[in-house]
Simulated assay, not measured.
Amino acid sequence: MYSYIDFSEDIAAGHEIMFTYRDKEYSISISQGGWYFTKVEDYENAIRYESADELLIQVRIANKTLEEVFNSGNLSDFSIN
Rank of each mutant, 00 (worst) to 15 (best):
V69M: 04
S72E: 09
I17N: 00
D23K: 13
D77N: 15
I47K: 12
G34N: 13
G14Y: 01
L66F: 09
Y4I: 10
N71C: 12
L55M: 14
E54C: 06
N63R: 14
F37K: 04
F70R: 06
I28L: 12
I28F: 03
S51D: 14
K39Y: 09
S27G: 15
T65M: 10
S79W: 02
S29G: 10
M18F: 05
E44Q: 13
G33N: 14
W35L: 03
D6R: 00
R22N: 14
A46C: 10
R22L: 11
D10T: 05
E54A: 11
R60D: 07
S29C: 13
R22Q: 15
D23V: 03
F70D: 05
Y36I: 11
R48H: 02
Q32H: 03
L55K: 07
N71F: 07
F70A: 08
I57T: 13
D23N: 11
R48V: 15
G73S: 02
D53C: 05
R60A: 07
R22I: 09
G73Y: 01
Q32C: 01
G33Y: 10
V69W: 07
E54Y: 01
G33C: 00
N71S: 13
I30L: 14
Y36F: 15
A62H: 11
K24R: 13
R60Y: 06
L66P: 09
V59Q: 08
S79K: 09
E54W: 00
S72L: 02
I61F: 07
N74Q: 13
E9P: 00
E44I: 05
H15A: 08
I30W: 05
G33F: 02
A13G: 06
A12Q: 06
E16S: 13
F7P: 03
